[in-house]
Simulated scan of single mutants.
Amino acid sequence: MTHTASAADTAPKTYPWEIRASGLKVRVGRSKMAVDGLDLSLGIGAHGLLGPNGAGKTTLIRTLATVLRPTEGELEMLGTSLGRVGDHRALRRRIGYLPQDFGYYKRFTVREFVEYMAWLKEVPKRDVPDAVQRAVERVGLADRADHRMKTLSGGMVRRAGIAQAIVNSPAVLLLDEPTAGLDPAQRLRFRELLTDLGRDTCVVVSTHLVEDVAAACSDVVLFADGRLVFQGTPDELGAAGSAEHPGDSPLERGYSALLRTSGQQGSAW
């Protein structure tokens, strides 16, 4: 089936950054400011979002996905301002989102699950079969497409989650801990997919695994206590550390050094 480009697909790009935040604050609960005065600009490419537990990574991802509303400051995605009020339905059609935990009907097959998510994202009906097939093939689930979700391993369920996130060919792709539950071979395939997606998509991937960022991301964003600590290339992150800092690789030592400088020492066991 031939895909027919929509007006949105062929419209000229009129914004300098896919994601731009200025003084962004997002409150969670009554008092905690989980994102606190963030200035950040992200364009095409794979951006690794690193930070300790409680740094605000998931809150930021959820805000970018329009699940949460900004409390203060400015946030713009794909040229659309995300204020505290407004209907962002049109923007959501252009976003792919994989949360840490996602729900699904266990009796759905993988194909039915991804089709359902394509329908929710308002993918044109004529394009859905091809879009679903491409998505399941890209995550290595073509041979499981007609198996029920309840029969899949945890890693396969995660891959089905990635498939639903990319089924609408998003301009911005948000992945929160996407490699959780993947075995080493699956993680290697995911890194290849991430590199491929980053060629023409703004991908933001939140992870605790520094080696995934090193292998697949062109840009690293280090987040601590709701604030931006560092943004640069993996090589620049590695250069920030030295042998005196904890870690088994240059990136881990750079990560430790920058957190120490920011006052975030990391939690003990």
Score class of each variant (00 low, 15 high):
residue 92 R to P: 02
residue 93 R to A: 11
residue 94 R to E: 05
residue 94 R to V: 09
residue 95 I to H: 03
residue 97 Y to I: 06
residue 98 L to M: 13
residue 101 D to Q: 15
residue 101 D to P: 13
residue 101 D to G: 15
residue 102 F to W: 07
residue 103 G to F: 09
residue 103 G to M: 10
residue 105 Y to S: 07
residue 105 Y to A: 12
residue 105 Y to T: 14
residue 108 F to P: 01
residue 108 F to W: 10
residue 112 E to A: 06
residue 113 F to N: 10
residue 115 E to W: 14
residue 117 M to A: 12
residue 118 A to S: 04
residue 118 A to L: 05
residue 118 A to D: 02
residue 119 W to I: 15
residue 120 L to M: 12
residue 120 L to E: 04
residue 124 P to K: 09
residue 125 K to E: 14
residue 126 R to Q: 15
residue 129 P to K: 10
residue 129 P to E: 04
residue 131 A to T: 04
residue 131 A to N: 11
residue 131 A to Q: 11
residue 131 A to S: 12
residue 133 Q to N: 14
residue 133 Q to D: 15
residue 133 Q to Y: 14
residue 134 R to S: 14
residue 135 A to M: 09
residue 136 V to P: 03
residue 136 V to M: 06
residue 136 V to W: 06
residue 138 R to H: 09
residue 138 R to Y: 07
residue 138 R to F: 08
residue 139 V to W: 03
residue 140 G to A: 02
residue 145 A to C: 11
residue 145 A to T: 11
residue 146 D to L: 09
residue 148 R to H: 10
residue 148 R to Q: 12
residue 149 M to R: 04
residue 149 M to G: 03
residue 150 K to F: 14
residue 152 L to E: 03
residue 153 S to H: 05
residue 153 S to Y: 04
residue 154 G to F: 01
residue 154 G to Q: 09
residue 155 G to V: 02
residue 158 R to A: 06
residue 160 A to E: 03
residue 160 A to Y: 00
residue 161 G to I: 09
residue 163 A to E: 01
residue 165 A to V: 07
residue 166 I to S: 05
residue 167 V to N: 01
residue 168 N to I: 08
residue 168 N to V: 08
residue 169 S to D: 15
residue 169 S to C: 14
residue 169 S to L: 14
residue 170 P to F: 05
residue 171 A to N: 12
residue 172 V to I: 13
residue 173 L to W: 05
residue 174 L to I: 02
residue 175 L to C: 07
residue 177 E to W: 05
residue 178 P to Q: 09
residue 179 T to R: 08
residue 181 G to L: 04
residue 181 G to N: 02
residue 182 L to N: 00
residue 182 L to G: 00
residue 183 D to R: 00
residue 185 A to F: 10
residue 185 A to H: 10
residue 185 A to Y: 06
residue 187 R to D: 00
residue 187 R to C: 00
residue 189 R to T: 13
residue 189 R to F: 02
residue 190 F to E: 00
residue 191 R to W: 05
residue 191 R to T: 08
residue 192 E to H: 14
residue 192 E to S: 15
residue 192 E to Q: 14
residue 196 D to T: 13
residue 197 L to K: 01
residue 197 L to Q: 02
residue 198 G to L: 10
residue 199 R to G: 09
residue 200 D to V: 14
residue 200 D to R: 14
residue 200 D to Y: 10
residue 202 C to M: 09
residue 205 V to W: 04
residue 206 S to Q: 07
residue 208 H to L: 03
residue 208 H to Q: 08
residue 208 H to V: 03
residue 209 L to K: 07
residue 209 L to A: 13
residue 209 L to H: 10
residue 210 V to D: 07
residue 211 E to Q: 10
residue 213 V to A: 02
residue 213 V to G: 01
residue 214 A to M: 06
residue 215 A to T: 13
residue 215 A to Q: 13
residue 216 A to Y: 07
residue 217 C to D: 03
residue 217 C to G: 07
residue 220 V to P: 02
